[in-house]
């Protein structure tokens, strides 16, 4: 090895030493700064953050949430009381959104309790409001519920008007899907099967794109019902089965029973009583599990009707 080579190595060692020292120094600084930085982070994060809602609004929100939970448990009276409490608080601070939310919710509970008069009265406060301007989404919700109430009463034309108003106030595809479903139902009940299928398909595509599974199943069931009424049985069964698989996934017992009854009835219309009874019996088991005596009675009647028909025409069993 020559001299130059040794010199270069010496320079190399020197520069390496500088790097090592620099690295050591920076790591020392980092180690000292890290705890300080961590403490600063903790102080920053641990400091009290002002809530976005006032105590009164929080209280109203609590009542609203408890009401929803009571409703889901089937305690409708309790749910109604809690929604009314939330409504009272919102009125007292003139919170228009909160007021609208709780009016619509309380009205939905009244409908469930069978008090249609009160349900209408509550909704009219939003739909006929002059002094206060409610947001379109709340008007859409109120009109949607009003349409359902009219549908319950068999007033299809009025229901259609309210559906129209609900759709015109709905400013997002989320609500449009279910509005098309109800529109389709109205057409189905009026006997316009083609329109029912058209609205059902519109609802289906919107609900699918919104990933709203419950309403997607509703669209499928609506189309199935319309197709069965049109005599397109095999397609109807396919749609019912699709609806059934979603409803099973969602564990929506009543809807499962509806799908099974729908399939059974489609078979019954084709005079395939053996298959029909199988589905009716499955539906009966679901309804009995729900403890719905009236529903069970209706299904038993369907089974009896099927048995009578099959005994008259044994070949078509």
């Amino acid at each position: 090895m020559n001299k130059t080579g040794k010199g270069q190595r010496a320079i190399g060692y020197r520069s390496k030493g500088i790097y090592v020292r620099a690295l050591n120094y920076s790591s020392t600084v980092l180690y000292r700064l890290l705890p300080i930085a961590f403490c600063l982070l903790l102080i920053g994060c641990g400091g009290y953050k002002e809530p976005t809602l006032s105590d009164t609004q929080l209280k109203a929100a609590e009542f609203n949430q408890r009401a929803e939970s009571a409703f889901k448990k089937g305690s409708y009276r309790r749910a109604l009381n809690l929604y009314n409490e939330a409504l009272k608080i919102n009125r007292s601070i003139e919170n228009i959104d909160g007021t609208a939310i709780n009016i619509v919710s309380a009205s939905a509970v009244y409908r469930k309790l069978g008090d249609k008069e009160s349900a209408h009265k509550y909704l009219d406060e939003i739909l006929n409001a002059t002094a206060v301007t409610y947001r379109p989404m709340h008007i859409s919700d109120a009109a949607f519920l009003k349409a359902l109430l009219q549908l319950d009463e068999g007033k299809y034309d009025s229901a259609k008007d309210w559906t129209d108003r609900s759709l015109s106030s709905c400013d997002n595809p989320q609500c449009q899907g279910k509005i098309y479903n109800i529109w389709g139902r109205i057409e189905l009940l009026k006997g316009d099967l083609t329109s029912a299928i058209t609205y059902g398909n519109k609802g289906l595509s919107l609900n699918k794109s919104n990933e709203d599974e419950a309403e997607t199943a509703n669209s499928l069931r609506l189309i199935a019902e319309a197709k069965a009424a049109k005599g397109e049985y095999s397609e109807a069964i396919k749609f019912y089965e699709d609806a059934l698989s979603i409803d099973k996934k969602l564990e929506a017992s009543r809807k499962i029973a509806m799908d099974l009854v729908g399939i059974g009835t489609t078979f019954f219309k084709q005079k395939m009583c053996g298959d029909a009874v199988k589905y009716y019996q499955r539906a009966l088991s679901v309804i009995e599990g729900l403890g719905d005596v009236q529903g069970a009675k209706e299904i038993v009647e369907m089974i009896n009707k099927c048995s009578q028909t099959s005994s008259k025409n044994p070949d078509k069993k």
């Binding site: 409703f71 939310i101 919710s105 609802g203």
Partner: peptide
């Protein structure tokens, strides 16, 4: 606060 979901 949320509006109670009403199914079609």
């Amino acid at each position: 606060e949320k509006t109670l979901e009403v199914d079609s």
